[in-house]
């Protein structure tokens, strides 16, 4: 009887898994953008997107593994099939839409913000630091301020601290804990700037089936409110929800 049971569950798993029965879905992330995604002290991927991704995989009945990669090559590596999704705080933009497919957003259009050492830091004519290759870097280049680009988000913050730049421009949710824990050293400057169309999971154009599954799973999480709970858990009560 026991053997029979095991056999039945195995068949069920096979049927429901269909195309992905043998294939695990590899989730690609950067692992350097807390609280969205980071490597925790055990050396594992952790953060909002880890928890979200695991929940989505559960709802879509997929087996998922996590892979980290450099931000610079995160899209080419998806294109050549080294992993199947990008879930790395990547904003949905027109440029990216041309080469990728996005699911519906799992995070509302995020505000970007300037942070500096004083509230009157010059953000229109001064020097502003941003991470290279982000939508924020593009925005600064167009804003008239002098753009100073660094390879990692960490370095952009360090640049303001040591006076290289007047302000740093990044996702507000990334800057919020830094500002609040700096003991008054950092402060937000000026108005928040809404950029991009929210954050979605990036997939290859041809992976329509997989995109459908994630879309449905995100929708179900939006409907039953678990997504909002998760956002509040990681980003605090003031964070924008759906």
């Amino acid at each position: 009887m026991k053997n029979l049971l095991i056999a039945t569950t195995a068949t069920l798993a096979l049927v429901s898994g269909a195309a992905f029965a043998q294939q695990t879905v590899r989730m690609g992330t950067e692992g350097a953008y807390p609280p969205y995604n980071f490597i925790n002290d055990q050396g594992e991927v952790d953060g909002f997107e880890r928890e979200l991704g695991d929940e989505l995989c559960k709802r879509a009945e997929l087996t998922c593994t996590w892979v980290t990669t450099d931000w610079d090559s995160i899209i080419p590596n998806l294109q050549s099939g080294n992993y199947d999704t990008i879930i790395a705080g990547m904003s949905i933009t027109d440029e990216r839409e041309e080469v990728l497919d996005f699911t519906q957003n799992y995070f509302p259009p995020a505000a970007s913000a300037y942070a500096g050492l004083s509230a009157d830091a010059d953000i229109t004519g001064g020097v502003v630091a941003a991470q290279v290759g982000t939508i924020q870097a593009g925005h600064v280049a167009e804003s008239g301020a002098t753009l100073l680009e660094y390879a990692t988000p960490d370095e952009t913050v360090a640049a303001v601290r040591n006076g290289e730049a007047d302000a740093v421009f990044a996702d507000k949710d990334f800057l919020a804990p830094i500002v609040s824990e700096s003991g008054g050293e950092f402060t937000f400057v000026g108005e928040d700037v809404p950029l991009g169309g929210g954050i979605g999971i990036g997939l290859r154009d041809s992976d329509d089936e997989l995109r459908g599954k994630f879309d449905a799973a995100i929708q179900s999480m939006k409907d039953d409110g678990t997504l909002n709970t998760m956002i509040t858990k990681w980003f605090g009560a003031e964070a924008k929800t759906f």
């Binding site: 807390p34 609280p35 925790n40 960490d154 360090a158 601290r161 804990p177 824990e181």
Partner: peptide, 18 residues
């Protein structure tokens, strides 16, 4: 070295500056 050395907020178990 980059990953460990970078400043850590309280999202981590061992927060520390750069």
């Amino acid at each position: 070295a980059r990953e460990l050395g970078g400043s850590k907020t309280s999202a981590y178990e061992y927060p520390h500056p750069d």
